[in-house]
Design a binder for these strands. Structure first.
Length: 516
DNA sequence: ATCCAGAGAG
DNA sequence: CTCTCTGGAT
């Protein structure tokens, strides 16, 4: 009789999706059985055991109904045919191992009863299906959640230079540096920076070059410039005292909705919850929040959730704990739910779907754009190009045709639906003197396809042969063969080529005719 | 909402 | 190279 391991959802990605694994040999002890399992699936080992080979604190093992904690741990004897259950620390749930579309029978519900320091196992019959929904922690559960996370953070927090100060200037500096770079990279930069610029005054009065030199290697130099600009504003407007309220902080360049609450909570203990990418991911998993998180309404909802979870007693630690959890445990890929201090409060973990949250942004559906372009050609083969559009304040840039086609020199272009000739004529009528317009003859050249990000553009070029080029305000005259003497986009080049080919095929036909 | 800048993954 | 991600700005 083989020994069977039951694998939790959180580990299945390491077992080729299997939820049970049979060990054919007859292991004498749990340690032997685990060795056999880990040999088959080595990555399971990392999640279950420390490097020293100890079972991680948040992993529970059951042989049948017995928690191995009380049957001798790794030395527990294994009988032939034993069923061994690997259970992540989940409490307060009722064996919720199913979600929509994942009909798995629920085997266990575990309630962690702290008073008795023991675990109770409940066998459930049938299937439990939980809806995919948002949950809000409150009351006793919320208090417990806060305590667990803060305890974890205070125990495991890394000793980082900016965690040894309450100086808002230094907190701010670290936040700006950390926005863009890993902790390990930031440390030496941070230390050099505060040594040279120990306070906001020294930063404000430094030559910009020196600031950039100390920043050099971190990238995002615009943020270094903003940093100094903000320091100067702090000195001039606030007498060198770092503003301690949200509005004034947000008014400083480079400080936005993330940085302001971070500085205020950590340096001043203000009760403001931060929401960055890490925190958002944690929240999405805790509350099983589907959809793309950056969508404005959803992001707002996440901010509210963050606000409600914030521990009012220690907002700074709380915010850092949430971010640290996201950075070190609740990571984007394969979250370590098995060793997460708050797994028991996490719907995503309970449903075994934490790793598939948050959802990716849906690809922007491609928008089909149909345009018609006018390619004038005079007797000498010269054409007309319009200048790059000025800033369009009143018109959405995306809808503005020349901008769609690129903000460079371009042929007169109009959006069309239906009769493109008529549309182009009417628009040209506004540009070109009336008497000339009536005589314009439009020859359709080959259609052009062009793709820019999510836009699929089809252009119908019309060649318009004229004796003299019309006068159009701002337009520039160039030889059609050499439109590239002005800065043009690839699309404009394609249009020019199509217009040239069209005319050559026309003249070829004429030649063919004349030979007869 | 959308754009931008810059970095990093693939 | 392209695609994706992030926080700020508008």
């Amino acid at each position: 009789m083989p020994v069977t391991f039951h694998i939790p959802g959180t580990l299945r990605e390491f077992t080729d999706g299997r939820n049970t694994i049979e060990i054919e040999q007859s292991p004498a002890t749990l340690a032997d059985a685990l060795s056999a399992l880990w040999k088959l699936y080595p990555r399971v080992r990392d999640r279950m055991a420390t490097e020293q080979g100890q079972i991680r604190e948040h992993v529970n093992l059951f042989i049948g109904d017995e928690n191995v904690r009380y049957t001798g741990g790794l030395a527990s004897p294994i009988a032939a045919g034993s069923e061994i259950w690997i259970i992540p620390a989940i409490s307060g749930g009722w064996g919720v191992t199913s979600g929509p579309g994942r009909e798995r029978p629920a085997k266990f519900g575990i309630v962690d009863s702290r008073e008795k320091e023991s675990l109770f196992v409940f066998r459930l019959t049938g299937t439990v299906v939980r809806e995919f929904r948002r949950t809000m922690l409150k009351g006793h559960e919320l208090a417990e959640f806060r305590e667990q996370l803060l305890d974890w953070f205070r125990q495991f927090r890394r000793d980082l230079p900016w965690r040894r100060t309450k100086d808002p200037y230094r907190i701010w500096l670290s936040e700006i540096m950390l926005q863009q770079t890993r902790v390990a990279v930031v440390i030496p930069y941070y230390e050099r920076f505060v040594e040279r610029f120990p306070n906001v005054q020294s930063l404000a009065t430094a030559p910009e070059n020196e600031v950039l030199r100390l920043w050099s290697g971190l990238g995002y130099y615009g943020r270094a410039r903003n940093l100094q600009k903000a320091a100067q504003q702090v000195v001039v407007r606030h007498g060198g005292n770092f503003p301690a309220n949200l509005e004034e902080l947000l008014a400083l360049p480079g400080i936005g909705n993330y940085t302001a609450p971070a500085v205020l909570s950590i340096a001043f203990g203000e009760k403001l919850a931060v929401l960055d990418g890490n925190v958002a991911r944690v929240l999405a998993r805790i509350g099983t929040i589907g959809g793309y998180l950056r969508e404005s309404q959803r992001w707002q909802g996440l901010q509210e959730m963050a606000n409600s979870l914030l521990d009012p007693e220690s907002p700074g630690d709380w915010n850092q704990a949430m971010m640290e959890l996201g950075a070190t445990r609740c990571t984007p890929k394969s979250p370590q739910c098995l060793i997460c201090p708050v797994a028991q409060f996490c719907e995503g973990c309970k449903l075994g779907i934490a790793g598939s949250l948050p959802e990716k942004r849906k690809k922007h559906a491609t928008v089909e754009i149909h345009l018609a372009a006018a390619v004038f050609a005079d007797e000498n083969g010269w054409t007309l190009l319009l200048p790059p559009p000025e800033d369009q304040n009143n018109e959405s840039l995306a809808d503005y045709v020349p901008a769609t086609v690129s903000r460079l020199w371009h042929f007169p272009t109009v959006p069309v639906s239906g009769d493109s000739v008529a549309k182009l004529r009417s628009v040209l009528g506004e540009l070109v003197a009336k008497k000339q317009n009536g005589n314009l003859r439009l020859f359709a050249a080959g259609k052009i396809r062009h793709t820019v990000t999510y836009r699929a553009i089809t252009v119908q070029p019309y060649r318009i042969n004229t004796k003299k080029l019309p006068r159009i305000k701002g337009a520039e005259r160039v030889p059609l063969q050499e439109v590239t003497v002005l800065p043009v986009s690839n699309l404009t080049r394609k249009i020019a080529r199509a217009a040239l080919e069209a005319v050559s095929s026309v003249s070829q036909k004429r030649r063919e005719l004349s030979f007869r």
